[in-house]
Structures are given as C-alpha cells and as structure tokens.
Amino acid sequence: MNLVFLVVTLSLVWAAVTGSFTVLNLLLGAAIGVGAGLFIRERIESPHLLLRLRRILSLALLFFTELALSAWRVAVLVLSPNMKQKIAPAIIAYPLTVSTDVQITLLAHLITLTPGTLSVDVAEDRRVLYIHALEMHDREALIASIKSGFEAKIIEAFQ
C-alpha cells in the first residue's frame, strides 16, 4: 500500500520534471520509483502513513502561513523610520525536546522561517539549539511560543 502510493507519486513527479505526460514516460517514472522504493523499503513501512501525511500537511500549512507573516514583519521593520530603536539582536539557547536528526533539522528550518528568528548552531550533544532573534524582548515567551507551536507539531507528526 505504502509502496504503491510512493510509486504513483514518484512517477507523477518524474513526468512533471521531464515535462511530458505520455504513458511511456509515466511507466519509466514508475519503474524508477519501484527501484527507489525497493532501495528504502525498510524505512517506509509504517502503518499510519495517511494519518502522518495529514499531520505533515498541517505542518506544511503552518509553515507557509508563518513564512508569509515573517516576510511581512521583516518588511515592516525594514521600512519603519525608527528601525534602530526597534531591534534588539540576541543569541539565545533553546533547549530541545526533539532528539532525532530529522526532527532537529526540520525544527531549525522552521525556526529560520519564523518571524524574527534564525537558527545558528546546534550544540555538540544535541540538547540545545542556538537561535538568533531580531527583536528579543522576552526570552521565556519566545521559547514558549516555539515549544507549543512548531516543536509540538513536529513531535505529533513524527512519533
């Protein structure tokens, strides 16, 4: 079931990338998809793929709204005349709850695209993420908003 889903998706993407939706090209895409699917077989055999897919989609939606908001906030900040008083750059240490590489990468990615925050580095022991904040007025509030927003959603999507 999972493999079929993956193969169909991959063959559609293949047809889109190569730019022709002929039967022959779709079959070629499907053949490559089967090859790729067999290659990563053990990794994709999870029972709740559809549920996970929905959660990942909701994460993606959150991501795009946050991106739009973030670009808007930066634009307003850049255009405001008293910009220098408004910004208070700081690097704060954010204690991570998520533990695997994929989740940390995703979280760092999302944080970079949230308003006024940019992830800089991960500590060697993977417990702390260093974040550069453009307007740091309340450290605890910033940490709490990431904890209850992105990190909660990521944990939901990947457990």
Binding site: I91, V128, Y130
Partner: peptide
C-alpha cells in the same frame, strides 16, 4: 554587540 549572547557560554 548582542543584547544577550548565550552561545558564548557553551563549552566549545
């Protein structure tokens, strides 16, 4: 300078 720089305090 930064208003706050917690990366400064890490061991490495």
């Amino acid at each position: 300078g930064f208003a706050l720089d917690e990366m400064n305090e890490r061991p490495d």
